[in-house]
Every structure is written in C-alpha cells, then in structure tokens.
Design a protein around this nucleic acid. Structure first.
Length: 129
DNA sequence: GTGATGACGTCTT
DNA sequence: CAAGACGCCATCA
C-alpha cells in the first residue's frame, strides 16, 4: 500500500456515506481494501485537520457507539452533528447501527475501484451487518 | 531499523 | 452482558 494512498481511500469512502446514514471504522477499512485496518481509519480521521469536506461524524465503532477521543472535537459535538441529520442518539452516545448503517450498492462501490475478486468478500461481510 | 501508539474488532472469560 | 486479551497495521519518534 503506497504512501498516503490509504488516507486518500479513507477520505473517498467516508465522503460517500450519505446524509443521515453511518458506517463503522471496520466497514470503512473494508471498503478501502484493507479489511483489518480499522484502527488506522480512526487514526486518519483523528488528524484530518482542514482537509476537504469529510463527514467524519458519520463513522463510529461497530456497536454504534461514539468513541471519539481527539482534542479538536468532542463526543458531544459529534452527537449534535448526527442528531442534526435526524439520527436518534441516546444519552450514552449510542445509536442503532441496524437502523442507520449505510450499505453501499454495487454501483456506489464502483468508484472505489476494488479488485473484482475482493468484492466477493466485501459483499459477504456487508451481508453480515 | 525498532518500538510505541491508537476516534477498532473479535474472541474469551 | 461486561471486561480483558490479542490481533491488527499505517505512522511517528
């Protein structure tokens, strides 16, 4: 994986998450072609700074829990952003992945240019969500 | 090069 | 169900 390509992919995937929908870190990693790099997704989002417009708040862990730890933004702020998209978030920073998780269509996935043989495992994983 | 550090995921108690 | 252990891997010091 060439230098900074991973970062570009993370940004591309996160930007594809539609308004009012969310995705998990592991899911973003999966769509980046690096299925076991979930922690790195968080790492990239953590130091986004003033990058191009990226809806980073639509990414949470697989349980639907807000686990932000960066100093720039708080969990409270992330919850506000999610709520502003009509997403119901409980007081303990939890939301229903079942209700809000984004499952990309095959068409949406084309832009990620993933190898055709890899797409099989992607779809398999997405089915388990 | 080498070891440490995560906005994680999953399996095991 | 909750908490801990491990695995993971791009970056950084």
């Amino acid at each position: 994986m060439p230098e900074s390509l991973f970062k570009k992919r993370v940004i591309a995937v996160v930007r594809a998450i539609p308004y009012g929908r969310v995705a998990s870190y592991g899911q973003v990693a999966l769509l980046c072609g690096a299925p076991r790099a979930s922690r790195e997704v968080g790492w990239v989002l953590n130091r986004l700074e003033k990058e191009i417009e990226v809806p980073w708040w639509r990414v949470l862990n697989n349980k639907g829990e807000i686990t932000i730890k960066g100093s720039t933004f708080s969990a409270d702020f992330q919850r506000k952003l999610l709520q502003s998209e009509n997403i119901v978030v409980s007081d303990d920073f939890l939301l229903s992945m079942h209700d809000y998780r984004w499952i990309p269509t095959g068409d949406e996935m084309k832009q990620f240019e993933l190898p055709s043989d890899y797409l099989k495992t992607v779809n398999e994983k997405l089915r388990n969500y």
